[in-house]
Amino acid sequence: MQKHCGLRLAAIATMALAGSFHLNTFAQTAEPPLRSAARWELSFSPYTHHWHHDDEHKNVALIAIERIQPDNALWGAALFNNSFGQTSGYVYYGRQWDGVFGQPALYTKLSAGVIYGYRGKYKDKVPYNRGGFSPAIIPAVGYRLTPVDAVQVAILGTAGVMFSYSRRF
């Protein structure tokens, strides 16, 4: 157990340090993103912290692709292994707000969509699950390390929080 905790902390520290060389420079000179063109973002999450320990929990890893429109509307899809080791997916639509609290690098997101993947004995681990499909609303807060790199924390309801790294292209 301690080994897994140490690996998780190392993953979080690595994500935080990944952009630390550019952090101060970007935070002082950042301007709001250009809104003249849609942009793609690829995200990776190596770690999710669960609020409550369960011996059946497995590490959650996620990869997602997202399209952010010039008006900051967004849509995307994610593929992940859920907390119980089942291959799962999330398709969603939402919105991003940049420059939160007057900080150019700080943003928030809200997405709503459908999760598929909690099946069998785990079907009741997410609310309103019908045939493996369940609705989801996921708020997130992010910090843009550079114009193309960001770290983000998503709140997964009563389950936990997910830490991720995003790259814009």
Rank of each mutant, 00 (worst) to 15 (best):
A140H: 01
L145A: 10
S20D: 07
P127G: 07
N82E: 04
S166L: 08
H22N: 11
E56F: 10
W40I: 07
T48C: 01
Y165L: 13
K58H: 13
L62P: 04
H57L: 15
F163Y: 14
R130C: 09
H53V: 00
F80V: 04
V100S: 04
A78P: 02
T14G: 14
I138K: 04
Q152I: 05
F84E: 07
A78Y: 01
N72R: 10
G131E: 11
H53Q: 11
S83K: 06
N81Q: 11
D54R: 12
T158Q: 11
H57A: 05
S83A: 09
Y165E: 03
Y128R: 08
L23D: 08
R167V: 11
Q2P: 02
H57E: 12
V100D: 07
I137V: 13
Y107K: 08
G85H: 10
Y90G: 04
V114G: 07
R95H: 14
A140L: 06
M15T: 06
Q28V: 02
I63A: 15
L42V: 15
L106H: 03
V100Q: 11
N129A: 14
L9S: 08
Y165G: 01
H53C: 04
F101M: 12
S166H: 12
D124W: 03
S111N: 12
L42R: 04
R144D: 12
S88I: 10
S164V: 01
